[in-house]
Design a protein around this nucleic acid. Structure first.
Lengths: 201, 201
DNA sequence: CGAACCCTTGATACGCTTCAACAAGAGTGG
DNA sequence: CCACTCTTGTTGAAGCGTATCAAGGGTTCG
């Protein structure tokens, strides 16, 4: 960690500021240390189209450095965020001193692949309600039956690839079915079994 | 290559046979040498739901070995196919003898991440017509204006995440607009510029 | 207080799926 | 050789799921 700090630079991003842009050459591995950064694309009307939100601390882009295509997405800070940028050259020096880091990197990338594979599967095979329920169950398992949203509902909607309106309607549906309780940004799962059953017939 | 052959095993798959199943422990890196293998999931009515087709020679699953979740998808041979299975231990021995292989692997995984990121983007932001056109343009760039489908149209539809019926209708639409010509499994692009323009306003 | 957000709700529109019927090969067996 | 079945792709009609557009309510903040 100490070695890393001498090789990497950190940088504060204001809300709305871009971490990197699509197509730009990727010279560094990029991670979010604090705050939240959105991955997506800037629209032709200069509107940012959110696809995935990354909460620190986590890697933001570990794939682009290894290829010559540049970044594949735009990245915009959704709030104030602290960025870590690690040049490829520094990374290789790190590898020499800490060979186990290579394995860590491989595992991180494998994790990213599996997560993305899961995402595409969900998009192809599940409708909006199932995607929402999947999200709720994944978030709940850790901490009881309560899900505290760390994001705006519109960001959650973007992650689920639906509009905020649809998300609102889906939540209402689950509420009137007696399966969940919603108070602001906290959702309580009243019947995880029934939710689970809604996922597969 | 020679060293690889002593460490890896190959194995013929009959059409319809499974290369691996979801959840099963992944002990090997798996590649397709010849033929085509489909990645997807087996339905609750034992029907295989195709999500992506992998044509040899190419990696089939390079991520699962590094994690302990097992395979994330089922893999079924779409025709007779030759499989290469490389145990993780053999792979590490390979790394010692050929350090540049590590970089190759990193780059392969980075490629996979970018490809999957592109796929999710397409699913979230593009409608069926745009996905089809994207596919056609990608396939055409290499070899003139002709696209020779290597797969059944139903498999192409699955890759585009639409039904065969919709694919048929979309093709008809493009034909009557005078943009393409379809003869069996060969598609000729008559106006790549116009197709390109249909992608973004 | 008004302004700027965020979320919700309703009405309507559209893209795609589903279901059903049918045509055109390809393989099979009498 | 022809009838038969299987598979693949095509076409049409109807229906579902989600987006879009418009309006209203609740907070927060200057």
């Amino acid at each position: 960690m100490h070695a890393l700090q001498t090789l990497a630079r950190t940088r504060w991003l204001a809300a709305g500021e871009l971490a990197f842009e699509i197509g730009h050459e990727a010279t560094d591995l990029v991670a979010v240390l604090q705050g939240t950064v959105g991955l997506g694309r800037i629209n032709h009307d200069r509107q940012f189209q959110l696809e995935r939100a990354v909460h620190g601390p986590q890697w933001l882009d570990i794939s682009s450095v290894w290829l010559s295509n540049g970044h594949l997405q735009d990245a915009q800070a959704l709030g104030p965020a602290l960025l870590l940028e690690l040049p490829l050259s520094g990374f290789e020096r790190l590898f020499v001193r800490f060979p186990e880091m290579r394995d860590r990197m491989l595992r991180s990338m494998a994790q990213a692949i599996q997560s993305l594979t899961g995402a595409t599967h969900d998009l192809m095979a599940k409708d909006a309600q199932k995607r929402l329920i999947t999200f709720l169950l994944q978030r709940s398992t850790a901490s009881g039956a309560d899900v505290a949203l760390r994001e705006r509902k519109r960001e959650l909607a973007a992650q689920l690839a639906i509009t905020p309106e649809t998300l609102s309607r889906l939540l209402r549906q689950l509420i009137s079915a007696g399966l969940i309780e919603v108070k602001g940004y906290s959702i309580r799962l009243l019947d995880s079994g029934a939710l689970q059953r809604l996922l597969g017939p």
